[in-house]
Amino acid sequence: MSDWLETWQSPMVQDALRVGIVLAIVAGYLGIYVVLKRIVFVGAALAQVSAAGVALAFLVGWNPLLSATLFALAGSLFFAQSWSDRRMSREAVIGAVFLTFSALTVLLASKGAHGMEEVQHLLAGDILAVAPEEVWRIWILGVLVLVAFLLLRKEFLLVAFDAETAQALGYRTRWWEFAFYLMLGGLIGAVIHLVGLVLIFGYLVLPAMGALLLCRHVASAAAVAIVNALLATVAGLLISVVFDLPTTATILALMSAIAALEGLASAAMSHSSR
């Protein structure tokens, strides 16, 4: 008993907890807009683009954070474009970007010092391996992104719900779309090499999904999404420490379970109200 408590109180786990908490709050909140805007796989594609940036950085000796962020920002610029008049569907392009940069990541990492081990790390990540100096950097970035998003939430909501009317009201929707993707891409780029693609993708999708099934309003859904993500993070870290389980997978499994329970609760409530 005291072993796991000692592990729980260790700097390594406490740093992981701090990173997890800020990700849960920021990505949990942004996830509401990602799901409502139906750009779930854009999040995955951006994460993969960032991962390629990290792989390139390790290969050529660049700063992985800078490289990941630059790649993510380039990806944001690409995805912020309007797709209404194109010959190819947006979904196909997202898939193509995901696959292309997945292949690129593997190819680049295979030539790096750590080879496929690096690919595995980029996919699954290891939140427990976050360095102490990274914790405060992620907190600062997270707070900046969250504050900016909270201040601009009504414009993001309008552009997401009705871009044409937003344009008619004088909003430059392309710039608003780019700003949204910039924040999303910036967050992903900053954490991908620390927590891995799968975990950040999970934070952007699963807590929001459960919250939107359960809640009737955007504001309450955002609050519930954050709670979902925090619960999964804290419990996931604790369970993984007690039972010596992979941390990323445990957190994701808990997020999935919470989303599933909320889905069932929502179905039960609709059934009983008939």
Binding site: L36, L158, A160, F161, T165, H217
Partner: peptide
């Protein structure tokens, strides 16, 4: 053209104006 799945009330939408 609008997605009715957005969890918005009638008042929320009118307020957008």
């Amino acid at each position: 053209m609008l997605d009715p799945r957005f969890p918005l009330t009638a008042l929320d939408i009118v307020l957008m104006g």
